[in-house]
Amino acid sequence: MTPRETVEYVAGLAKLKFNENEIEEFAGQFQNILGYISEIEKLDLEGIEPLTHITQTENVFRDDVVTPSLTQEEALANAPKRNESFFKVPKVIG
């Protein structure tokens, strides 16, 4: 994929629409990022385990005890659209 196609593809997955100027701009930024990643890819990583977290901590848990939720009004406060107690979104076909 060309950087431009990558921008259009990722925008599609994220349900975003960009104009021509934006696509150009992001394509350039994308190319920089991918260029940097391909530099990293050149490193010899033989025998090195992937690291997903900086900390080696494990097992951070919560007890299974109910804590107060937001009220219905608070939960819906930022909703662009609502129908009584529901969030309302454009029609989604099942």
Partner: peptide
């Protein structure tokens, strides 16, 4: 820590974590 109760009124068992509010952090249930 929101309740999993079935059949509650709509949107009464939510919080910034399960609503996906920016900055909210999950903590896993043992």
């Amino acid at each position: 820590g929101c309740s999993t109760q079935y059949g509650a009124s709509p949107n009464v068992n939510t919080c910034p974590v399960c609503l996906g509010h920016p900055g909210a952090l999950p903590v896993f249930n043992r």
